[in-house]
Design a protein around this nucleic acid. Structure first.
Lengths: 231, 231
DNA sequence: TTCGAAATATATCAATTGATACATAATATG
DNA sequence: CATATTATGTATCAATTGATATATTTCGAA
């Protein structure tokens, strides 16, 4: 039985106690493949990226890809899981603060502040962090054309994000329960996040920028804050 | 010499005076193929869509695709041109009004109104018009991963749109010339348009809607108008 | 009606590509 | 150290797919 079999239905580490992680040789290969796949899938998309290019970038050959991830699609899903994990790690503090705000009977101002922090963290992640740029490309593509990873992003990014923001917006407006309107507002706000990837692409071309500078990052954040202030 | 040769460098109708358009038999085939390609490319993207499926949907075979459009990529570019043409046709009135407002020494209120009309037309087109839904998918994808049609969309949609809106925003703020800030504001506004496609995908899932209703369309437009009122 | 050009279909090619059978090497464990 | 397990490389397969050579049909002009 190969490792790949245990991947079915789960992209977590294969059957092995979590203690000895990264100790065995194979873990390094697995990680190299995952990193290479993030770059290739991010640059070309699921269908256009080829397993050969991924293997080449990971300085290995084809069989290890299937050995560790079962199939190209399994590898793609593993990339999605990795992206979500990085997103959760980067947003951990803002999310924890938001959760506390929601659970405690906080006032409108605290909710407003929590919402600003959440949005700022997401924008920073997409526009500011060069490494995550790959992730935002994959996410944007998966939204333009729901593919093998849509469920992962939807269940672990969009749905929780919409729910969380809707409660904060509701709190801002001092509603007794979350209204449908707050929910729609939340959707509009959350779904504006991927558009920052679009903005990156268009702005770089329109302004001749090679990268998004701190100045534009600050401007975007400021505009978002103003938007939240006017809710 | 075949028709396909004349496609190089131009996706316009092959060498034939524009008078007798749609008269010859081939024009109907060409149109059927284009319609089929819009659907297939819209659903699956450039790489994933197959010429066989397009031919099948157009109730024909492979050679006509190359005969009329030279190659798969030529067909894709023709689709992009078609999308831009439809967009321009649907937005013609709002664009003409904006042009008049810009050229005349209109005041801030007229500029505000022209900008609202422009944005409303785009939103209506993407969220409201079912037929154009295909186009917004292709556009969204092309932004997530610049491909063979990026230049077409950029040159004929983004660049003119950004320029136009920047002038209107500048007028709203009563600036002597268009400032860099107005330009950035314009980019943020214009690049928010494709995100309505994202919103369609996410909202349909999150709210369990099978389609975007008139109510949500009105809400989105209202939110945008408020945003413009606060510039 | 006749003839040449335009249009469409059949069959096939060649390249790409995901996957894997098989052999070999590396590693860990007793 | 010995051996079973894990890991990796070579070579190859089979399916998909864009493209086209070639034959046939359709159509319009003379």
């Amino acid at each position: 039985m190969t490792m790949g079999d245990s991947v079915e239905g789960s992209v977590a580490q294969p059957g092995r106690d979590a203690v000895s992680n990264a100790s065995r040789k194979g873990d390094q290969s697995r990680q190299r493949i995952l990193d290479a796949a993030l770059i290739e899938f991010g640059a070309a998309g699921f269908k256009s990226a080829t397993t050969r290019r991924i293997a080449e970038r990971a300085k290995t050959t084809l069989p290890p890809l299937n050995y560790y991830f079962g199939s190209k699609e399994g590898l793609y899903r593993a990339c999605a899981e990795e992206i979500v994990a990085r997103f959760e790690r980067a947003n951990h503090d803002a999310v924890a603060a938001a959760r506390r705000t929601i659970e405690a009977a906080s006032g409108a101002e605290e909710a407003r502040d929590a919402l600003k922090k959440l949005m700022a963290a997401s924008v920073e992640l997409i526009l500011g962090n060069a490494t995550y740029g790959l992730g935002s490309g994959i996410i944007a593509r998966e939204l333009a054309e729901p593919g093998p990873a849509f469920d992962i992003f939807y269940d672990r990014l969009w749905l929780p994000g919409i729910e969380r923001n809707a409660r904060l917006i509701s709190r801002i407006k001092s509603e007794p329960d979350v209204s449908a309107e707050s929910r729609v507002q939340s959707i509009l706000l959350v779904s504006s996040i991927p558009s920052f990837h679009t903005r990156r692409v268009v702005a770089q071309r329109a302004m001749g920028w090679s990268a998004i500078g701190a100045a534009e990052l600050a401007l975007v954040t400021k505009v978002l804050h103003l938007q939240i202030d006017r809710m």
